[in-house]
Write a protein that binds this DNA or RNA. Structure first.
Lengths: 97, 97
DNA sequence: TTGATAGGCAAGTGACAACTTGCCTATCGT
DNA sequence: ACGATAGGCAAGTTGTCACTTGCCTATCAA
């Protein structure tokens, strides 16, 4: 459902998480936590980030894979494509008549 | 600010308004109200729709022009383009190595 | 000028979402 | 086995957002 995608993108912290995953795929929860703290001065608890990741995963924007006690997260940009084409009408060099 | 764009797109009613403006540009507040009621069974007050339009206008997704006692609203898809390219990395035929 | 129409401003309410706190489970190293 | 590390679950709180209600301004028609 694209509803979940829009709701997931509504939060600035979640968008920053997507930025970080776009920069480097396959990060664990703790890696994302420290990156948010270091690079973005976002001092969130581990649970807060975990909940954000759950929202992103429900939206399909993040895919996770478990390996042992680690859980790695990957970015999935596929749900983004449909949300733009929703209002972008076929391009005409001039505006519509 | 793209922050406003994401917040504007977070609400399903606002997305429906964008749908209606994509279908027909230059609608007044009352036209949008009745369209939401007729086509989408969204029985909102005039003020509710007006507030939604204000949010969309702040985000730059809707541009309005006043003529007499009427205020016409037009869709502007330009702010949408940047929000996609934010995470869409350069395309490779296969997945990243 | 009066009434009707199109829209605006501001305070109040209810619901949801972000975040925290506290506790619990699972995997790895020694 | 034991401690440490990586993560999960659930309840509570606070703030924000969507929506309503009530009143006010501006334009047009008669």
């Amino acid at each position: 459902m694209s509803e979940d995608v829009f709701k997931a993108l509504a939060d600035p912290t979640r968008r920053t998480i997507l930025d970080e995953l776009a920069e480097r795929d396959g990060q664990s929860l703790f890696e994302i936590c420290s990156r948010l703290a270091m690079k973005h001065e976002l001092a969130l608890t581990r649970q807060a980030v975990s909940q954000h990741l759950a929202v992103l995963e429900t939206a399909g924007l993040v895919v996770s894979r478990r390996e042992g006690r680690y859980k790695f997260h990957d970015l999935n940009t596929q749900p983004l494509e449909q949300i733009v084409t929703r209002w972008l009408r076929p391009r005409a060099p001039e505006s519509t008549p």
